[in-house]
Design a protein around this nucleic acid. Sequence first.
DNA 1: CTCTGAAATTGACAATGCTCAATTCAACAT
DNA 2: ATGTTGAATTGAGCATTGTCAATTTCAGAG
Lengths: 245, 245
Amino acid sequence: MQIVTEQRRKDIHNSDVPAVCAACEARHGGVCGTLTPDQLLDLSRHSTRRRVEPGREVVGQGEISDSYANIISGVVKLSKVLADGRQQIVGLQFAPDFMGRPFTRESALTAEAAIDTDICSFPRNVIERLVAEAPGLEHRLHEQALKELDEARDWMLTLGRKTAQEKVASFLYIIATHIDPENGTATEFDLPLSRADIADYLGLTIETVSRQITKLRKDNVIRIESSRRVTVPSMDRLIHVAGID
Amino acid sequence: MQIVTEQRRKDIHNSDVPAVCAACEARHGGVCGTLTPDQLLDLSRHSTRRRVEPGREVVGQGEISDSYANIISGVVKLSKVLADGRQQIVGLQFAPDFMGRPFTRESALTAEAAIDTDICSFPRNVIERLVAEAPGLEHRLHEQALKELDEARDWMLTLGRKTAQEKVASFLYIIATHIDPENGTATEFDLPLSRADIADYLGLTIETVSRQITKLRKDNVIRIESSRRVTVPSMDRLIHVAGID
DNA sequence: CTCTGAAATTGACAATGCTCAATTCAACAT
DNA sequence: ATGTTGAATTGAGCATTGTCAATTTCAGAG
């Protein structure tokens, strides 16, 4: 079964913004935002854009530290597992975030598409060369790391101290605020994660997640159009139930 | 009550490593490691070394993004609180880590000394100037952020998926491996955190922490010399109970 | 040495969330 | 339509962890 469609970028011989990049939804986000047209051209020569289907690893085992990628659209789950199979999602990446690990650092992380996801990836050595040339790039990567650190710490508070009810509400709020990269908070959206994924993100079981969603529905905090589709009548109420205030 | 002793560093007029730094335990760690003698001198002119007592905030409210500090010795707790007072420790910093947030980024974090802690702090603007001059410095800060991100994600797995028993064992292992910055893993050590702090770090209650410590003692995984002092007869067993393998 | 107060431990009981099992539901193939 | 499959929901009982309260321990003050 073929699951990714690859298309190596055309080499364009002028120093304007490469056509592929000009049309790219993540042109100004991710790593690309800080690059000059020349650097962007350099990078685009080695970039590969492809679609990853749900459940597929974004980069093969062990490659995670070998390549860098911008998320054009979609959602990627970063997760860790214990020897006996218990799993925890430690981060969700939305477009136009970029992913990858600068400078090797072994951290058994799995990156997997949660829904259909388009990514644009570059080999590690090209990124490293550009980092050496363009000081702004490392700064950008640094800021991304700090953003992820803040998010991780916020989530630690959720994992360690919130009730199941608050955890589920917090999750819904995260999705509402991140699912649409363009606009702000969405009041109606599709959940990018299955109940099993949500449970792994919240440190709960599938059953508890389901029961809490049912409870939120009965309390009129959310409406469930279908198992994946959610409407939030009052974001303030959701925030309140999530314990964020 | 005066709780910190301040001593502004003497301005030394030669470009060798400043005397205060040469004698500093964190000379090669923290931010200082990558600086040239000139830069180190520059930095030392604006640095303040002081001792912070347990329970005291390392930097005043809101200042956390305004200054940077190296931990010379001791342990600092980084924590977050919910509106109703529930608290979660989201990170422990040991010597010779450095702390602080480059580039403003409001993240309601409290940094508090867990035990007597010596820190050497610098104002934000000096760090920013040095970052602009010395590219290696931002790289160092970036690596510190990545290290903290890895640690945060490891801890998320512990918070979300481990049992109380595994959590307490994981905590003891963290302390054993970090408490002595010089040497490697310690088999006998003082806990830098009270039971209340441990509970806040593990997302448990004081009582559960106490019961699990008692159980580990009865199972001969650890020995308790006093409530703060712990001996680990077999680190392998501790690791096993912690679920790290 | 005794008193004091905070920290830690221990016990009894309750509650939150988990386990196991049975349905239900939706998508899709026959 | 009907059957099949995986995902989600629901229920009943239980285990782990939390709550509340009573001791115990220990360090420091007098």
